[in-house]
Design a binder for these strands. Sequence first.
RNA 1: GACCCCGUAGCUCAGCCGGUAGAGCAUCUGACUUUUAAUCAGGGUGUCGCGAGUUCAAAUCUCGCCGGGGUCACCA
Length: 501
Amino acid sequence: MLMTDTSPQAATPQDEKARRVVQLEKLTTAFGDPFDITRFDKTHAAAAVKEQFAPLANGEKSESRVSVAGRVMAIRNDGMFIVILDDTDRLQIFHDIKQCSEEQSALLKLVDLGDIVGVTGLVRRTPRGEITVDAERMVILSKALEPPPEKFHGLKDVESRFRHREQDLVATPRTRETLRARYRMVAAIRQFLYDRGFLEVETPMLHTLAGGAIAKPFVTHHNALDMPLYMRIAPELHLKRLVIGGLSEKVFEINRCFRNEGLSPRHNPEFTSLELYQAYVDFTAMLDITEAIVHHVAMTLHGSGKVMFDGREIDFTPPWPRKGMVDLIHEHTGVDFYKITDPAEARAAAKSIGVDTMPGLGWGQVVEAVFGDRVEDKLIQPTHVVDLPKEISPLAKAWPDRPHVAQRFETYVNGWEIANAFSELNNPREQRARFMEQAEQKRGPDDPPHPIDEDFISALSFGMPPMGGLGMGIDRLGMLMTDSKSIREVIAFPTMRPDHE
RNA sequence: GACCCCGUAGCUCAGCCGGUAGAGCAUCUGACUUUUAAUCAGGGUGUCGCGAGUUCAAAUCUCGCCGGGGUCACCA
């Protein structure tokens, strides 16, 4: 009878995994266990090779030896051409399969798509123009026991992309670009603020009271103290306490906040915010610094203040228009809420233009609702919306001569709020009164009454300098800067339900 | 939480007015060998998300569940 072939047949995907395990065993026997390798001395990144040897003409060989390493993305002509990918670029590797040693050809048979290899050799440009490393020596530095996604179409299924982000990163250039841009953006903001004398600080993630904003918090439990703790919904109150103490007159924090609310293309349960506080300035300084930060980010990432988003050009070049919230409503609906002071009348006016509001809402909440319904999504180009109702601004100073309007603005781009800033309220007695008012306002039947943060009131009573404060949504800014339609694109590991096994 | 859409091979997808699952990539065998999604010939691929129902017969129709996407609600 015929001898059966002992090499594994990849009849099924399970067999493919088994085949790779056999490949690993063969590799271990012949060349040693790749997982014992601890280092490879790279001399060049793929992009650096292409850059350094760019002057080579087609068909020209250099005498320069380089060592490169990366993941095997393509194998052509039985290993004659291998394409590797590192964190800078792809790079072609060449083996002369007619000339190479028995050892080399044995190794070539053991290389699979997805393996991590290190290669040393001379650089040349092929007759067809590709910068290539002629391998003198190749080492399999790590073995992929799972096959990579399809080499041309990559990983398309959004669920797989988010669940297996490492595969997405390897398979999808856009994902690499988007996430790198996001992290470079964060670095650019940090550097911008360092250069202006801001001190980066860290404040608690675990709060005994979830303050500084109104949102449902995630609740956890501390065993030793036997008490509930809340994941922070905002860092605001602690940051102010650091300024009160004089740690620095300029502080900022870029870090995570957690809100136990619905998910959407613009909401992830954990998201990143920038909050900064500067003593002895008011909200107008925050207007300027908002524009400067965002413009700096656009220049850093795009070399231009103009950025394309969803087929539209958004121009971040300062200055940006500043418009009153009530004035914008007037402009877009014809209703002038400055001429209305009675809450019931305001609700009726809202209803007359098709905005239903819950009974019991105050003037400011009605203005906010109408703005959200009729104006917000019209604000595509960067716009500072100023003069927000005091009622919805419990941590902001009101104007002395216009007591129901706060010294506050929100910045909108593409219909999204990306920044929120005010002249910080530093009057402890008024702050307590505002918190009391807030506690009275029942937001929904499920929402528990909001407790008053006595530690914060006490800190204010110790004396807080007048100051401006700013909050900025980093993920949304990242979306705008990377033309991403979902917040999940700019978060490496977005929150997901576990896949059932 | 409500509504709409989606879930077929490891990956990208076709099949879906019911008739018992198919292509490309990947993988295997062979040929070829300076390719660029290499090419050519041949082989194998699956709880058709899970469960139930209707039916002689279900990937296909119906219902429930799971997971994902979207719209809305929620979200200062």
